[in-house]
């Protein structure tokens, strides 16, 4: 009896401490199924040509900071993250989407940023507060580009 009560109390603490953080962790409503996000963000349609540009551009996604993709026109691609050549054959579209949206939700200690995350962050530069690093449209564009990287 006593044990049960204290467990219930602890459970409440658990909810209040963590509930909010997960609720507004991401910039918009997203349904996670297993390790994938099946539905396109905000129902947006991705464009692979724009996606490639966002993937390489320093001002946008700048994924080449850490990742290489063979045949991509960008010099000095980084190697902090795995090579993404052929990623479209290895992962489903939904898996790719979830990895860009919230890599830190999948691998809590990873260096890969969560590009669609806005909540539970600290000391965010005022220029970037309240907005995700990439918009729903930009993420869908990158997804469309990576989906085509099948060999």
């Amino acid at each position: 009896m006593k044990i049960a009560r204290s467990s219930a109390l602890l459970f409440l603490i658990f909810l209040s401490a963590c509930g909010q953080a997960s609720e507004d962790r991401l910039a918009g409503p997203v349904e996670i199924s297993g390790d994938a996000i099946i539905e396109p963000l905000n129902g947006k349609q991705g464009d692979p040509v724009r996606g490639e540009q966002i993937f390489t551009s320093r001002e946008a996604g700048h994924c080449v900071l850490c990742h290489q993709v063979a045949r991509l026109d960008a010099e000095f691609q980084g190697n902090v993250g795995p090579v993404l050549t052929g990623i479209g054959a290895r992962l489903s579209v939904g898996q790719i989407r979830y990895r860009i949206v919230d890599a830190q939700g999948i691998w809590p200690d990873t260096v890969m940023p969560s590009y669609y995350r806005t909540g539970g962050l600290r000391q965010v530069d005022h220029e970037y507060q309240g907005a995700p690093a990439l918009s729903a449209q930009q993420i869908e564009d990158i997804v469309a580009f990576l989906e085509l990287q099948t060999n």
Binding site: S6, S7, L10, A17, C18, A21, R25, G105, P108
Partner: peptide
């Protein structure tokens, strides 16, 4: 108790 505490800690760990 210890188990639950661990649960709380890991449960909150997404707020790293």
């Amino acid at each position: 108790r210890a188990y639950l505490l661990a649960l709380i800690l890991t449960g909150c760990s997404e707020n790293h």
